[in-house]
């Protein structure tokens, strides 16, 4: 198995605004969202980042996708550094999160062409790819409808398809089934397995155990920005259910950090 992604002590802190400090009843000026996170993902696997709300999953994925820069540490994607070669990294990944939106005014059809163009995809290849993907996700029916007039599920499908215009080797997906009904969610998860079978690597984040159990080959559990364990699904769960194991890890981690703070 080829290591296609390696995160090395990724760290990210955010300055808290005074307003934020007041809301969260904290005197801290900075919040450490991601704390020296290291992990690896291998070609052709689905890697899941599992963690509670505010654990730093989205922040980690945004760093990997080069939207934000780590304060310290680095990550190599297909051998390219997210710090020093962000453009190359961007050409090899797809990034999907609710933060990235499509312009309401345009149709999925036009946007597919537009992003193909930005990724410098050969027009003939792009046309074939569009046909295949639109058919696969039933976008044909609303390919000419403005994004603003689509339901949120339709929008997510369109976003997913458009993020794949350049047939990326690595797909980074923040909460893949968030806001989708069971049917659409299944379409998406089935598609992710299919992509893995084609040899793509998928990094996803979630706090849904069933999704992880169904989909992931390996997982990393993040709590308070730190990687608690990172291993194959069976090795992490050991002989408990994943959920029970997670609570165990969570209690241990929070107790550790509290006693660590006290010391």
């Amino acid at each position: 198995m080829r290591e296609i992604l390696r995160a090395e002590s990724l760290s990210k802190t955010f300055k808290l605004s005074t307003k934020q400090q007041r809301i969260e009843h904290t005197k801290q000026r900075v919040r450490t969202a991601v704390d020296q996170l290291s992990f690896s993902a291998y070609e052709g696997e689905i890697f899941g980042l599992l963690g509670p709300n505010g654990a730093g999953k989205t922040t980690t994925l945004r760093m990997l996708a080069t939207l934000i820069k780590p304060d310290a540490g680095d990550a190599l994607i297909d051998g390219y550094s997210i710090r020093s070669q962000p453009e190359v990294v961007r050409s090899r990944i797809a990034f999907l999160t609710s933060e990235l939106k499509l312009e309401d005014f345009f149709t999925p059809d036009y946007l597919f062409d537009f992003f193909s163009n930005l990724h410098a995809v050969d027009p003939i290849v792009a046309r074939q790819r569009k046909q295949r993907l639109f058919e696969r996700f039933g976008i044909d029916e609303f390919a000419q409808v403005k994004v603003g007039d689509l339901s949120s599920g339709m929008k997510q499908k369109a976003s997913l398809v458009i993020s794949l215009v350049h047939d990326p080797a690595i797909i980074i997906f923040d909460e893949p089934t968030n806001g989708l009904d069971v049917i659409t969610a299944k379409v998406v998860t089935d598609f992710l397995s299919e992509l893995r079978d084609q040899g793509k690597t998928i990094i996803l984040s979630t706090h849904i155990f069933s999704l992880v159990e169904k989909l992931c080959d390996r997982i990393g559990v993040i709590i308070n920005g730190q990687m608690i364990v990172c291993d194959s699904l069976v090795n992490v769960a050991q002989d408990q259910s994943l959920e029970d194991r997670f609570f165990e890890l969570y209690l241990k981690a929070t107790k550790d950090s509290r006693s660590g703070d006290a010391a």
């Binding site: 990944i93 939106k101 499509l102 930005l118």
Partner: peptide, 17 residues
């Protein structure tokens, strides 16, 4: 406008300079 609506971030993850 694009920043507010979150559409510029979509452009920022493409390899365009």
């Amino acid at each position: 406008g694009e920043k507010e609506r979150g559409t510029i971030a979509t452009l920022l993850v493409t390899p365009m300079r």
